[in-house]
Design a protein around this nucleic acid. Structure first.
Length: 341
DNA sequence: ATCCCGGGCG
DNA sequence: CGCCCGGGAT
């Protein structure tokens, strides 16, 4: 696909007018790229202005003391970026005689400069055809080519880097790189991308297949959270209390036993049923503990049973069911295992 | 209030 | 591969 032509056309009209894009120098590119890592333009822009005003040259940056740099950095987050820049500035003064290294390989020897930043400086400041691959590029390419390789796997990273290197415009690598990132930030956004007015929608395979929202793919499992559930088998004679789950949560619409969810393991215990009924004079026995794993949650459950002498003692949205009728209700495996096994 | 996002380092 | 951080979206 010839991506460069439409992208550069769009960029020349719609690209953002940013201070480090005027009178380009390697120092400005480096400063802006490091500041913009993990940072939105709106937030980083005043920091760039401030740094460039206070420390207008690589030499000034190298000679500043760390306290001054961190003070200027205050509020931007990821403070190792500032500390690393200080080291890198001194590397440049000492190893490269005060002038920026010009090759991707040399640039990567600078502290805090990885693949992305080295490619950005090499292409924007030195016109070398090295494709940047940042979050924008992953998103744009995974959608345009409907690629479902995970962007957080080593194989996926390599695949996207190679694809990006094929697509880059060797005539204007710097503008091309900035164009695709602006496009990702302004049109092909993570949430609510502007597909309907996108000039690439006819070429976009994910748009064509209706999977834009599912790109890019990440393989890292969603962080699994721990939850602590205490279930109570509350019964009177032949009747047992059940409850339908209606919250926007796991097992919505299914039935379960009266439940008390607690924040952590320490709160676990039979006493939790006092939130549901008056436990005075009742005998509550623990039946067993069970860990139940879902894709995104680890449920630490404990089952208790308690017999009550008056149905009214259990307040809330419960229904009393004959034990023989329990099979008419849909229960999560966790609960049916308890009830029927 | 909670989730999501993101380059580079150790 | 987990951590570093703050802001924006939800």
């Amino acid at each position: 696909m010839n991506l460069a032509e439409p992208l550069l056309g769009w960029y020349s009209k719609e690209g953002r007018d940013l201070p480090w894009r005027q009178n380009i120098t390697p120092y400005k590119v480096w400063l802006s790229e490091i500041i913009m890592q993990q940072t939105r333009v709106a937030q980083g822009l005043p920091y760039f202005e401030k740094f460039f005003r206070e420390l207008p040259t690589i030499e000034a940056f190298a000679k500043a003391d760390q306290d001054q740099i961190l003070h200027l950095w205050q509020g931007l987050g990821y403070y190792s970026r500032g500390r690393n820049m200080h080291v890198a500035a001194n590397q440049i003064m000492e190893t490269y005689d005060g002038s920026f290294p010009t090759t991707f390989k040399e640039l990567k020897t600078l502290k805090g400069v990885g693949d992305y930043t080295a490619a950005a400086i090499a292409s924007i400041a030195f016109n070398q055809p090295k494709a940047v691959v940042d979050g924008n590029v992953y998103r744009v390419l995974s959608r345009l080519f409907n690629i479902d390789k995970p962007i957080d796997s080593s194989g996926g990273k390599k695949y996207f880097q190679e694809l990006a290197d094929e697509l880059i415009d060797p005539e204007s690598p710097g503008d091309y790189n900035q164009a695709i990132m602006d496009f990702g930030a302004m049109v092909c956004t993570p949430k609510n991308p502007l597909c309907e007015k996108c000039f690439l929608k006819e070429k976009c395979e994910a748009y064509h297949d209706g999977v834009v929202q599912e790109r890019p793919v990440k393989s890292k499992k969603v962080k699994v959270s721990n939850r602590y559930f205490d279930y109570f088998e509350v019964y009177k004679g032949d009747l047992i209390a059940i409850q339908q789950r209606d919250q926007n949560d796991v097992w919505k619409g299914l039935y379960q036993l009266p439940l008390v969810e607690v924040k952590n393991r320490l709160e676990k215990g039979a006493a939790n049923i006092s939130q549901l009924i008056d436990t005075k004079g009742l005998e509550i026995s623990e039946v067993y503990e069970k860990k139940h794993v879902l894709s995104h949650q680890r449920l630490h459950t404990t089952f208790y049973k308690v017999e009550i002498d008056d149905l009214k003692h259990l307040n809330g949205d419960y229904r009393w069911v004959k034990r023989n009728d329990l099979h008419q209700y849909a229960f999560p495996k966790l609960i049916s295992n308890y009830l029927f096994d």
